[in-house]
C-alpha cells in the first residue's frame, strides 16, 4: 500500500481453550474506505476483530503485533483502545436489552466531549423517536442501527464492524449497507461481512482468511470477479457472487 495504513496486523495468533484459531495473520487496513474481512464460517473473522479490540476471552491468548498509527494495541485494556478512537460494533448487535434506546446511547457519552447526537439522529431518525423504548423490544434492524449509532456518538479513527447484516431482512440489509456507505465516507471501516452483495457495494479492499491464515489480500472487486477464487476461498457459487 502506498499510503500509510490506519491499522496494521502482524503475525497475529490467537489460541482459545487450546484451539489455535488464528495462526499468524498479517494484513493492513487502508486509511479510507471499507476493508472487508472474508472467509468461511468459523475461520476466525470475529476472533480477529475481538483480538484487535482486546476482547479475546479469558481462556484465550492473543499474540503478535497490532498497530493503529504508531500505537501498539495488544495488551491494552479495551476501554482505553475504544477511547483512543477504535469503534467496535459487535456481532449480534449486543445492545443492552433492558435499557431504553436513550440509555443505550447515553452510556456511550464521554466526559469532556460533546456527543454527536445530531449526526446519529440524522442517520437514524428512528432512534430519536424511540428514545424511551426498551432496546430489547426493537427489531433486529433497529437494534443494529442502535449498535452503530452509539459508536458514532464519539469520534473514531477506525470502525470495526462485525456482520452487521446477519439475520436481517433483505430490505433492512440494504438500509444498513447505505448507512455504512455514508459512515465510511468519513472514517475507515474494517468490516466482517458474509453477504457478498453488501461486500460488492462497500468494499474497496479485501482480506480473505482460510484455516486461521490469510489466504488472499487485494482489491475487493478483483476478488469478486474471479469466481473460481471466490468459490475456493469462500465456499460460495458464482450465482451467489453475481446475484
Amino acid at each position: 500500500m502506498a499510503v500509510e495504513p490506519i491499522l496494521s496486523v502482524e503475525d497475529l495468533s490467537v489460541r482459545i481453550a487450546g484451539l489455535h484459531i488464528l495462526q499468524g495473520v498479517s494484513f493492513e487496513v487502508a486509511p479510507t474506505g471499507v476493508t472487508v474481512l472474508l472467509g468461511r464460517n468459523g475461520v476466525g473473522k470475529s476472533t480477529t476483530l475481538r483480538a484487535i479490540v482486546g476482547l479475546t476471552p479469558r481462556n484465550g491468548e492473543a499474540r503478535g503485533t497490532v498497530r493503529m498509527g504508531a500505537q501498539s494495541l495488544l495488551a491494552r485494556p479495551t476501554h482505553r483502545l475504544v477511547r483512543g478512537g477504535l469503534g467496535y460494533v459487535p456481532e449480534d448487535r449486543c445492545v443492552f436489552a433492558g435499557l431504553t434506546v436513550a440509555e443505550n446511547l447515553r452510556l456511550a457519552e464521554r466526559r469532556g466531549t460533546t456527543p454527536a447526537y445530531d449526526k446519529v439522529f440524522a442517520l437514524f431518525p428512528e432512534l430519536d423517536r424511540r428514545g424511551r423504548q426498551r432496546a430489547g423490544s426493537l427489531s433486529g434492524g433497529q437494534q443494529q442501527m442502535l449498535a452503530i449509532g452509539r459508536v458514532l456518538l464519539n469520534d473514531n479513527r477506525l470502525l470495526l464492524v462485525d456482520e452487521p447484516t446477519k439475520g436481517l431482512a433483505p430490505k433492512v440489509v440494504t438500509e444498513v449497507a447505505e448507512v455504512l456507505e455514508r459512515v465510511a465516507e468519513s472514517v475507515p471501516v474494517l468490516l466482517v461481512e458474509q453477504n457478498l452483495a453488501v461486500v460488492r457495494r462497500l468494499a474497496s479492499d479485501a482480506v480473505v482468511l482460510s484455516a486461521g491464515r490469510v489466504a488472499w489480500t487485494g482489491d475487493a472487486r478483483e476478488l469478486l470477479l474471479e469466481t473460481a477464487l471466490t468459490k475456493s476461498l469462500l465456499g460460495v457459487g458464482s450465482a451467489e457472487v453475481h446475484s
Partner: peptide
Amino acid sequence: RAGVENREMVTALG
C-alpha cells in the same frame, strides 16, 4: 445496569 447485562460491551463503549 448495563454491566450486569453484558460487561464486555460496556468496556467496548470505552
